[in-house]
Design a protein around this nucleic acid. Structure first.
Length: 723
RNA sequence: GGUCUCGUAGCUCAGUUGGAUAGAGCAAUAGCCUUCUAAGCUAUGGGUCGCAGGUUCGAAUCCUGCCGGGAUCACCA
């Protein structure tokens, strides 16, 4: 039963009876009474004055009297200025709570009539660099909105469109070809810039297996020889003391390099020197025949060091490795531009003429011509990146029903354009390029096919939109894409409309604001990006530190500990991002923004854990929840307030689904948790003597816990039973 | 320059189908752990809702102009 609807009808009825005139339904404004006034629902009477033709206070009083006398659930009313505050009988609220407790999917809509099929695209990464903070917002939003819409009974398909082709990936490929030898890579990659995983990995001496083997071999041979000299087993004619001292020097050099990381670099840098030393080689070859194979294996290792790096060899996440090369490309490209400028070219020309960019463009052409060598490199590098993304997605807790690749879809849309030309919706210019004229819509002209007949981004998006709607027979499609593309989607929608697709009006752009750092925008070229994997890691570390400090991790096994800190760290991050209205630009301060007190994820998780603790204790006591609550008990204002909050949950979900706004759920849950903590503070639950009241409070708490879990679940945030 | 968008407490954000005295958290200060988890609770201070007009019973919310920040306006994606 919807009490608000009932009230509305009652008021309509009352006005008709009292003033002999039925007002427009829109004039009946029922809203929840504000906290600082008595009452549950408020009727704003100002709009009704036209009908009543009496002053506001009098009108309100007359209506109040009538409603109190005629509506069973209305127990009290009061009038302040032009506001009629109505109080609903507490018996109603208690019985409402009763029905809610018995509903396992409270707030969710099941078996909706005519459910819609809705596609939601999010993430849409480029395969040339790892995911960053902006992607985190995108992914969390996309996943959460999908869940929220699903909760309202519609069928949702989550879709990812991976941008795996284009000049950007060629840049990484080219840099890999040029500076990808392991030797070279380890030389230019700034060790300090490597992520913490990699650093700790090096410090643990877990070198790539080839290096480990290499170092071991060298060391083994050398000690063997040296000890041979010492014990006199090696005859002097085989080498003499000169070898011995030489080997000693090599060892000393290696060992003087400080940490293992630098030792490794030193060995790699000087591998030629070691292996080519005739002394060393000859010694191994001639004098220790049995070791012949090992000498050869040294050659193999040398070979390996001169081959190109892969994620496997260095144990670096593939997306990060490819990202390294993207950055490297940019650095070298910049150098070339500077050089050309110093030789007298304008910057603009230099950007076009730099050899590197020309090569990258050539590579793209080869790719389009399906050059086998390029294609296989492209496949390999994309594979690395996608493997890396999968890990990040898994850590974030997001997934997809289907992944589209631009390499397969980029040619789509041409047909649509051709048809558009036939229909004379589009125009062909003299040079053969195809445009759409949007000047009537207050926009510019937009190109759809280049003069050489190839498609642009827009063409492809037209095609994928069409394909998706047909693939899924969808009713709506939502694109979770940053607000920098507002113009693009505006145009996309108009063009699809012009091409005659009626579904174009059901294409929504969920445009979210950028995530900025305190210093301003994130810029990958300037290194001011917050890497997604790093951030997730650091959140967990902070959570661990915090929990230890508070002594919350005592008495847990390692795996329980790990689970708790991950839940908390991730919860803090996800909540922080999702509580902000999607469309707003948000600021993220890595050091200060992430808090565990106040309006945060951990605060809510903590509240949930508290409730679970009470329930555990109740079970221990053998307390059972009654099927039917005693509706005659007295309940406090705080308790009433909590029931009213529970009452509004379904409405919050509905609004959040309509507005694509997880933030509304986040803020609601925060409210709920805050109110609960206040209630908890001064209402004993298990310690209450009156059994009916104790049962009621336990009931109430349990239900609040359920809603916290359910709401947080829609934000993809887990809640721990204890913390 | 055109178009779009945002501007609320020192900071991060709620609040906008027009409704009562504009709310939280962080930071600051002062309190509360022999009782269900103190990642909690209570209290204090902190505001020209960017500015100026307009619409009306009533404007942070709607309209216009201005100021300030951001995005976008490629035969890039």
């Amino acid at each position: 039963m919807d009490i608000e609807l009932m009230l509305k009808k009652a008021v309509l009825n009352a006005v008709g009876k009292l003033y002999k005139q039925t007002p427009d339904e829109k004039l009946i404004q029922i809203q929840k009474t504000r906290k600082d006034f008595d009452g549950d629902f408020t009727l704003v009477v100002f709009p009704l004055l036209r009908v009543s033709k009496k002053p506001p206070e009098q009108t309100a009083n007359e209506l109040g009297e009538y409603l109190k006398d005629n509506i069973e659930q209305i127990s009290e009313f009061n009038v302040i200025k032009g506001f009629l505050n109505l109080s609903i009988d507490k018996i109603f609220w208690i019985s409402y709570l009763n029905t809610v407790v018995q509903d396992d999917n409270y707030g969710f809509i099941k078996n909706k009539e005519n459910p819609k099929t809705i596609l939601i695209e999010y993430s849409s990464p480029n395969t040339n660099k790892p995911l960053h903070l902006g992607h985190i917002r995108n992914n969390l939003l996309g996943y959460s909105v999908a869940k929220i819409i699903e909760s309202q009974g519609d069928k949702v398909y989550k879709v990812n469109l991976v941008n795996d082709r284009g000049i950007h990936i060629c840049k990484s490929m080219l840099a890999w070809q040029k500076w990808g030898e392991i030797n070279s890579y380890l030389n230019w990659i700034p060790i300090n810039n490597l992520d913490s995983n990699y650093r700790s990995y090096l410090n643990k001496n877990n070198y790539p297996k080839e290096y480990v083997q290499f170092c071991k071999e060298i060391e083994k041979y050398c000690t063997k020889i040296i000890s041979g000299y010492k014990t006199g087993n090696v005859r002097s004619k085989l080498g003499g003391n000169e070898y011995r001292s030489e080997l000693k020097i090599i060892f000393k050099k290696i060992r003087n390099r400080g940490n293992s990381c630098e030792q490794l670099k030193y060995i790699i840098d000087n591998v030629d020197q070691f292996i080519n030393k005739s002394t060393f080689k000859d010694l191994l070859r001639k004098r220790i025949k049995r070791q012949r194979k090992k000498v050869e294996s040294l050659e193999v290792i040398k070979e390996l060091l001169n081959t190109n790096i892969t994620p496997d060899r260095i144990k670096r996440k593939g997306d990060h490795l490819v990202g390294d090369f993207y950055v490297k490309f940019d650095q070298e490209y910049k150098k070339e531009i500077e050089e050309l400028v110093s030789k007298g070219q304008t910057e603009e020309d230099a950007k076009k003429n730099a050899p590197l960019i020309l090569k990258a463009q050539e590579m793209l052409r080869k790719w389009e011509a399906k050059d086998p060598e390029i294609i296989s490199l492209w496949k390999e590098m994309n594979h690395w990146v996608l493997e890396g993304f999968d890990i990040t997605y898994k850590n974030l807790g997001v997934d997809f029903d289907k992944t589209y690749f631009e390499s397969k879809t980029y040619k789509l849309g041409k047909k649509l354009v051709e048809e558009g030309l036939k229909e004379r919706v589009l125009i062909k210019k003299e040079d053969g390029s195809v445009w759409v004229d949007l000047t009537k819509e207050g926009l510019d002209q937009k190109i759809l096919l280049r003069s050489d007949g190839t498609s642009v981004y827009m063409t492809q998006d037209l095609g994928t939109a069409h394909q998706r709607f047909t693939d899924y027979n969808a009713d709506e499609a939502i694109y979770v894409v940053g607000n920098e593309q507002n113009y693009h989607f505006q145009v996309l929608k108009i063009i699809l409309g012009k091409l005659g697709f009626s579904w174009s009006e059901y294409l929504h752009h969920l445009s979210y604001g950028m995530v900025e750092l305190p210093e301003g925008k994130m810029k990958s070229r300037e290194g001011t990006v917050v890497d997604a994997d790093n951030l997730l890691n650091e959140m967990t570390l902070t959570a661990e530190e915090m929990s230890r400090e508070l002594g919350k991790l005592e008495g847990y096994s390692d795996s329980e500990e790990k689970q708790i800190i991950e839940t908390i760290g991730l919860g803090a991050l996800k909540y922080f991002i999702l509580k902000v209205d999607p469309k707003k630009t948000m600021t993220f301060d890595p050091k200060e923004s992430i808090d565990f007190n106040g309006n945060t994820g951990p605060f809510i998780q903590y509240t949930f854990a508290r409730i679970q603790s009470i329930i555990r204790k109740a079970n221990d006591k053998g307390m059972k929840l009654p099927i039917e609550l005693n509706s005659k008990i007295k309940i406090s204002n705080k308790e009433l307030q909590l029931i009213k909050l529970i009452y509004s949950y379904p409405e919050v979900l509905k609004e959040a689904a309509n507005d694509y706004s997880p933030a509304q759920i986040a803020n609601y849950i925060y409210d709920l948790a805050k109110e609960f903590n206040q209630f908890y503070h001064d209402h004993p639950i298990l310690g209450e003597d009156d059994k009916s009241i104790s049962e009621f409070r336990l009931h109430l708490s349990k239900q609040l816990g359920e809603i916290i879990k359910s709401g947080m679940g829609l934000l993809r945030i887990n809640v721990p039973d204890r913390m």
